[in-house]
Nucleic acid binder design. Structure first.
Lengths: 153, 153
DNA sequence: GGCTGTTAGATGTCTGTGCAACAACGTCTA
DNA sequence: TAGACGTTGTTGCACAGACATCTAACAGCC
């Protein structure tokens, strides 16, 4: 464990990273399972629909969307394929860049999203916010914001 | 967005969850990619080796280990298969329960872990701790600890 | 001792995702 | 205008992981 000191870390710091990891994975798993049993919607699909719903014109470039839902472009291609097959999103060409494609939320997609959103929100509340306790949210936000470097990597 | 109010959430609270998600996923991705290029070791494999190294006798029951690395039993079976194929861990029977198996860290496994650990620690530092800034660690720990309910679910 | 129910791991199967390679298009420079 | 270079999205491929199912072994009970 002297390796820790060699790299200038404390055991506590390392533990904090592990806790972050555990927390995120477990919360995500529970959210996903709740969405799945109640609406047959995987978490990633929900997030795509939610991002599209929030975007102007209910549409987003594939690349842009991939960033927001933390998927590679290829991963998003397949996911949009699936959603399109179920009629929840469509693809539309982009007039000012012939390479570009928009993923567009369809009416059925919006309906499905509306149906699933209460489940999602309740999950976030019960699996995450309730555990945090009351007044800390701004504080947590500030901490996490530092990790959210929109970097050049 | 009145849905938020219906469930008693604020937009900020929802954003905090998304930030947690992004932070964890991105940090994990970078750690994994660093471990992969430098040592050909996926993050999950590293974590298994690390858990075994910390355990008494360098061994852990499959079930126990699966919990610690956030894998299902089946997932861990395959992962241990792979690691065993590369000689980094072994399997040993459990004397007091004939159903049980220990995953045991081998000497080559320990060596590989020792080799990869500086990369891992540097990654945790540069991708996570440095971004957090200095004195907050105890505070963050306290916050995350609340999410780490070792629950009955 | 023979049931019943539970737990530990392993395996078949399927889905999802990343990486590398590719084609189509845009952009910049000469 | 042409060519080099970067970007966007899709595809072939391989792999990792979840779920359901299976077998073996334990525990409790009559």
């Amino acid at each position: 464990m002297t390796l820790l000191r060699d790299e200038g870390l404390t055991a506590e710091e390392l533990a904090v990273w592990r806790m972050l990891q555990r927390a995120q994975v477990r919360i995500a798993r529970r959210l996903e399972s709740e969405l799945l049993v109640a609406h047959g919607l995987p978490l990633a699909s929900y997030e795509v629909l939610a991002q599209l719903a929030e975007a102007p014109g209910r549409r987003l470039r594939m690349n842009d969307l991939a960033d927001r839902v933390l998927l590679t472009r290829s991963g998003l291609t397949r996911l949009i394929d699936r959603l399109q097959r179920h009629g929840l999103v469509g693809r539309e060409a982009c007039s000012d860049d012939a390479r570009g494609l928009f993923a567009v939320l369809t009416e059925p997609g919006a309906a499905r999203l509306a149906e699933a959103t209460p489940t999602y929100l309740r999950g976030v509340k019960s699996q995450f916010l309730d555990l945090l306790g009351g007044g800390d949210v701004g504080e947590v936000r500030a901490l996490l914001a530092r990790l959210d470097v929109t970097d050049a990597c």
